[in-house]
Amino acid sequence: MDTPAAYFHWGFILISVPNLIVIGGMIVLFAIALIAPFPHGGEEGDDVGNK
């Protein structure tokens, strides 16, 4: 825990592996949120709350 993090170095890109994992995980989560079906409960909503 007290040792420096490993770094990923590719051209001008230099980023620590922990940060790379977090950003990669966020991108994966964002993609899943776009693709995964959303459960619909009850009837379809109308335009309430949408001026």
């Binding site: 949120a33 959303f38 335009d47 309430v48 709350g49």
Partner: peptide, 12 residues
């Protein structure tokens, strides 16, 4: 609100 527009049905 108790109802939302149809396009709000997304995890985003």
């Amino acid at each position: 609100p108790d109802r939302q527009p149809y396009y709000v049905g997304s995890w985003v």
